[in-house]
Design a protein around this nucleic acid. Sequence first.
DNA 1: TAGATTGTTAATCGATTAACAATC
DNA 2: TAGATTGTTAATCGATTAACAATC
Lengths: 183, 183
Amino acid sequence: MQDMNIKKVSSHELGQKLDMNPAQIRKDLAYFGEFGRKGIGYEVSYLISKIKEILKINRHINVGLVGAGHLGIALSNYNRFTREKLSIAAIFDADPNKWGMSVGHLKVQPVSELQETVKEKDIKMGIITVPATEAQKVVDQLIAAGVTAILNFAPATLKVPSHVHLRNADLTTELQSLAYYVD
Amino acid sequence: MQDMNIKKVSSHELGQKLDMNPAQIRKDLAYFGEFGRKGIGYEVSYLISKIKEILKINRHINVGLVGAGHLGIALSNYNRFTREKLSIAAIFDADPNKWGMSVGHLKVQPVSELQETVKEKDIKMGIITVPATEAQKVVDQLIAAGVTAILNFAPATLKVPSHVHLRNADLTTELQSLAYYVD
DNA sequence: TAGATTGTTAATCGATTAACAATC
DNA sequence: TAGATTGTTAATCGATTAACAATC
């Protein structure tokens, strides 16, 4: 709506677009504060900024990626990250043949430099795109370096301490959920 | 549990593992049929087969992948698909330089062959890993070929007719949801 | 038989929706 | 002012949990 230069929106309009009851929208928003004006509605730009604040996506975050294989390179080139204030700030790999290889504006670094680089570049999140057999070792190293939020693409069940937030991006599950609708 | 050679399980045990109330588990399962035995519990292998049946993941499905870039190649090599009865049976790309290129045991085909190959190989699902600018064109071609379940990795909002099931695998959202827990 | 556990009905709990005073 | 729309309280609805007869 902001892109379409629409300035204000009512809970009724939002409800139509999101296929939700207007009262639900007002109640959910009201839980976090008073963002609207009676008789007027919600100001689009203000609502966006408030929602970003609530979801904590109103700040820049540096991300470290471990595993310079096809998936790792694909993610590095994924330009939507940049738009959403997420920067891949370093890429690591265990394979000496890949060290120094250019990926975008970055060069692949040895995993041994992980700890130092995480501190230096203020990396707060990690992405794991190594083979399943290497994943636990990598997650341990990321945690040792102080990273507490990790997105794992390796098809492995990883063990992390309770203060670390691990999210598994399981592409199989996505496909399987679609399989339900086939035929 | 099957891998651990455990033969039977009670709703109480399942509840503990899944962090759910035992009554919830019994009720949910009972919705689909009577899978347990009073005084005994559920037989692990039977329960697995019934759940796979309910979720319709008890059959082999061939998948066509469009876009032989890094992400496409990464997905082709993703061996977990095979284990879950999902086979990438063909890879397409618009770039003539990629035609004939080997990816696993497949060769990259021109998109012009899509329609024919989908029929020939009984492809039921599609994966889109092309640039955002090409995605709508590709989804249209997949639909024209008769594919009704599509997983899209391109950061684009695609239009599909109501009988087609489109699922967007948005990697940004995954990362953003983790960002909430940073600091 | 006694203990265990299901499937299901009844009770409880929480989430959604309706209604409305406040007010722009 | 009259119409619109919020934030919030009250009413409704549905989902979760407890309880228990059936039975292995």
